[in-house]
Design a protein around this nucleic acid. Structure first.
Lengths: 343, 343
DNA sequence: TTAAATAATGCAATCGATTGCGTTAACAAT
DNA sequence: ATTGTTAACGCAATCGATTGCATTATTTAA
């Protein structure tokens, strides 16, 4: 029924040479004469031979596979990161096994185990773990398999390899921009502040308030899932506030645009009554009415840098105990949802 | 330097049993007594043993890996499909190697080869090939490895396993909806019509025209890359037309929204002067001003159905020579960019 | 108590490619 | 002609888990 696998032994038998010779010929080992190499190449093609990467990886303990774990892959930001990763990996002769954790620490751990079992050469994680030190990567560290965190990094990030932006600084800029226009009641709608990125954004928000001598009110910080649904719920809740906030800093664009849309439906003028700032620079944030002020977050670059860092670790026999941090540049894009002339 | 791998032999040695016993114990083979099984389990945990999936796959020729090839992974639609795939695969004990072809047939072929080398159990492809029969999957067919095409399927699709929507019908409905409001100059902006999905959308467009007794004008069909940039270029070009078209059917939302945005900037009223219909139902198509009429395209479902079909083929020793086609339901979402009361 | 049946475990080959080391062949040097 | 060098290739072990077919230990039946 199933066709037999075609192996180097088959080629060897067909040409009356040893499997060793075939193996060497196929990878251009210098000890094989041009003539036999040619013959073998030809025969391999003719027989439809395809190398068995599993066998090769088992023997050499090198899989040319990188594992990726993300909370979910279908956000504009994350899929952009992954696209960058795939491109960079592919260019370097690697490929990706991508898994989703769905914000579950248990699933993240299971994923890590599976990737370990498959002997990935390296692991890239946007962690969903809120514990200071994610324990489930121990086996990787023990075997010296490089692990790089990106975007969502662990609390004690300076011990690990990380690629991120300065979320605190970005949030600080966004909030300050709102305060600069004289707004005083700035609502912050964010995600789980156990997660590093949201924690830092919150810190930036607080810092900007304090610097402007505005009191911090924890009632003005809402932790949500930042989804479209959360946006709808938040919008409703905002409508019940009195006084209304006069500005909102939302921790992602999806949620920001949803909120903006629903507030407008309720007759609220953006930015006149309420200014809104998002985060991520999703493609359509530019095309909403009004266009959304947001933080431009370099997804593709993050993916590429993450892969490059891991491949770098792979190629240099690194003995550095400490992790390396790469902090990418972001940009505050001031658009119509905050009515300020540029600077 | 590197810690030695911990294998079943190490566990066997530590407990004075054979590796065979350890292997069986770890997979709950009934022939192993509860007692030894317990001991082995415990020891494995204690020693930090992690199964080597490469060795296992080599021996059993079952990798529990599925390959995926897509043109690019960072569109809203595609990442949604992939998210569905990853979820479904993971639930079934499989995982995904995802690769991008970047619309290059050569890259697609290379990717297929690599996935074959890695002995994936099945392959899922959104093909970029415009040739009637994609030859680069031959090795898979020869070895009876299931291949399922989704979204972008080959020309002779009825010979293969496919999961799609009826693009012709969807385009027909979209175009007809425009014509129903009395529009006569309907521009169709689409992608490479060598690709099946765009070809079929074009056919649907033509069919609707012909049914309404409107002449088909090939100058009213523009093949573009459907990107944001293409949208900008198209918008400029539209502004030079006289008379202006009174309706546009764009083959994706990204491009549609860009065009709408730029036309509005030039003072054109949507939908009063020009109606616009998109395709895909990207998340923000609902939040644009005006909201965009579009075709709702079930991405996640497509991913899940594709994986399920492949796993189905994997589990049943299929001898069907012909492929199976799954056609998913789509929906025309009538919104503000076409000024028609529902129905 | 002993044969028969069943339960538990071990032996050794296998999956396919790789590679250190040893051989053989070919050619050059003396 | 003999030895020394290279060049070209083969042998066989190895990576780690699996599994058909023994073999041994334990029960059960008679």
């Amino acid at each position: 029924m199933y066709k037999k696998e075609i192996t180097i032994y088959d080629i060897a038998a067909a040409l009356n040479v040893s499997a060793a010779t075939v193996s060497r010929a196929l990878k251009d080992h210098p000890a094989i004469s041009k003539k036999t190499r040619g013959k073998i190449r030809e025969k391999a093609l003719e027989m439809g031979y395809q190398t068995n990467a599993l066998a090769s990886s088992l023997r050499t303990s090198k899989s040319y596979t990188l594992g990726v774990i993300v909370p979910r892959l279908n956000s504009n930001f994350m899929s952009t990161v992954l696209a960058g990763m795939e491109k960079a990996a592919s260019d370097a002769g690697y490929h990706l096994i991508i898994m989703q954790s769905f914000e579950s620490e248990i699933k993240e751990k299971e994923n890590a185990q599976l990737l370990f079992s498959h002997r990935v050469d390296g692991l890239m994680v946007s962690t969903t773990s809120t514990s200071p030190e994610p324990a489930h990567f121990k086996p990787f560290f023990a075997k010296n398999i490089p692990v790089v965190f990106f975007d969502r990094i662990p609390q004690k990030y300076n011990q690990y390899n990380c690629v991120t932006i300065d979320n605190r600084e970005a949030a600080w800029q966004a909030t300050r921009h709102l305060l600069d226009t004289g707004k005083t009641r700035v609502l912050h709608i964010t995600g789980n502040t156990g997660i590093q990125v949201y924690k830092q954004r919150l810190e930036g928000y607080k810092a900007a308030l304090s610097e402007a001598n505005k009191p911090f009110d924890h009632q003005m910080v809402w932790e949500t899932g930042l989804s479209v649904e959360d946006g709808e719920i938040s919008a409703k809740r905002i409508m019940t506030m009195k006084p209304l906030p006069d500005a909102i800093f939302v921790a992602n664009d999806t949620c920001a645009i949803t909120i903006m849309h629903h507030l407008q439906k309720n007759g609220i003028k953006i930015p006149e009554q309420i200014e809104i700032t998002g985060f991520n620079n999703d493609p359509f944030s530019e095309f909403s009415k009004p266009s959304l002020t947001t933080i431009n977050y370099p997804g593709e670059e993050m993916g590429i840098k993450t892969v490059n860092l891991i491949i770098d670790k792979l190629n240099t026999k690194h003995i550095e105990p400490k992790g390396k941090q790469i902090v990418l540049k972001f940009g505050l894009l001031i658009r119509e949802s905050t009515n300020q002339a540029a600077k």
